[in-house]
Design a protein around this nucleic acid. Structure first.
Lengths: 131, 131
DNA sequence: TTTATGTATTATATCACTTAATACATTTAG
DNA sequence: CTAAATGTATTAAGTGATATAATACATAAA
């Protein structure tokens, strides 16, 4: 899994997982954690495709999904830009986190762990992490 | 998503997700939480396939994976049985939980949440759950 | 005018998943 | 002994998501 740098972003793609989803997730997390500032210009479709050695259509698909989520806006021939709506970014961040938490807890409960069990496990890990 | 009862197990399959993985996950969680006792006999391949309205090969694939994990054993023409090795079950349960935790934390960190952040979120949910 | 951009279309390829249709050996039940 | 149920194996085919390829067009900036 080679790391590819494009602008301020680092990509590491895993063939075997959908590429457009990985590109999407990379950019999304870059926005969520502020690595990509509001209003930042994304690499052009062709440019990113070239850098990642994937098809432009695959990048387009990721960009379209970013637009659908309200994280990016296409400015015609000027390029694609991260939204300037900080609230939108925060909302997406929250939604994704909520979804991750829900899926995680569901999985843990399937394995027979209760919510307090899970809290305890993570608590311990947190303690071990910062002693 | 219709619920189908087979013996002591309830199945609800979602076309669009790999069927063999769903069958696998259902049985795995049934074992992990003790719903399926040690040494229990699983439905025959044909029987389960018939009940779930899927192909016997698909069930076979799930059963083979259960064997690979050490959760089930094929007893030839007598059927397929859950292992009697309680330690093995517990180990699988632990492994699956550890994997789920790792994946979850990685995802949350991608979204810019630290481990203490996550602990706090789940803590709050736990408090709200049991007031 | 040239260039870079987003966008769209059509075709093809690949791969995982699923179904289908049998077939065989072994064990249990009658 | 016979019949039935079981796990197992094989071969073929179908389906859908994903990805690539090759173009094409309109717009805006240089």
């Amino acid at each position: 899994m080679k790391e590819i740098h494009v602008g301020s972003m680092r990509f590491s793609l895993d063939p075997g997982q959908p590429l457009y989803e990985q590109v999407l997730a990379h950019i999304r997390s870059a926005v969520a954690r502020g690595e990509l500032p509001l209003g930042a210009r994304l690499p052009s479709v062709r440019e990113l495709a070239q850098a990642l050695q994937i098809n432009p259509n695959t990048v387009m698909r990721a960009y379209r999904e970013l637009e659908r989520e309200g994280l990016a806006e296409s400015h015609g021939s000027q390029g694609t830009y991260i939204t300037r709506d900080a609230g939108r970014v925060e909302a997406v961040r929250r939604d994704l986190a909520a979804a991750a938490v829900a899926a995680f807890l569901a999985e843990m409960e399937r394995l027979g762990f209760t919510l307090p069990d899970v809290v305890r496990m993570l608590q311990e890990r947190s303690d071990a992490d910062t002693p």
